[in-house]
Amino acid sequence: MHPAIVIEALEKTFQGNRRVLDIASLTVMPGEMVAIIGASGSGKSTLLRHLSGLARADRGGTNRIVVNGRCVQQRGHIARDVRQIRAGIGFVFQQFNLVGRLPVLTNVLAGALSRLPLWRTLPGWFPECEQERAHQALKRVGIEELSQQRASTLSGGQQQRAAIARALVQGAQVILADEPIASLDPESSRRVMQTLADLNRQDGITVLVSLHQVDVAMQFCRRIVALRHGRVVFDGAPSELTTGVLSEVYGSELPSPELEPAVTEAPLPAYARA
């Protein structure tokens, strides 16, 4: 079985020689649900953006990123056919990144753009089967009745589920979720995470989700990768994630109390205990 995601020698330096990513090797197998944790600025978002070719690694070097068996970027050059590769990668953003003035249905149908000809997509003539697919996707995430509303009128949780429905219409085998619940209330967070977990378990979609809340990561994911200053400092099962590891991951930023509840005596939120 081919891995779903292969990362080799990924290095990314921002202006001012600030090394934000330095990952020697990371592999995710199909059907895995992996959480990426780490403090703010540890490189979680940057890593996910590299995986769908929205960001480019440093030129030179031997870096290589392969998703779904296809090379997204190599030695700091984005693949020419990156748009076709992206079609197989659903991306869920912290701020949802829906087009607020368009109806939810159109936002979800955008997932079909890559496989339709321009004469259909430019005037917005989506074939019947794609419309049906979009409705099915909206039903799957539980917001079918909102399909004709403008996306901007939805709550944060509903928008995020619409964004997941867009990934479903893409037919994505991999979903990358960049802090999908960071802007949501606890109940919406639980529903969004549950939706991602269901897609992972029932459809076998590989999910890579960056999270700020360690407890959520431990509840929903069987594998956790922790980043610190762009390096992988932990990669293993939630049970191996000890207080010692966490204090290494979060370093001096640990004091913020909501970051350390899982393995300490602090009680888990209700949804995490369920």
């Binding site: 748009r83 079609a87 197989g88 991306f91 949802f96 955008a110 997509t121 867009r166 893409q170």
Partner: peptide
């Protein structure tokens, strides 16, 4: 939102 559309492979 433009990046959201881009990420679908459009």
């Amino acid at each position: 939102p433009v990046e959201g559309i881009r990420a679908t492979g459009a």
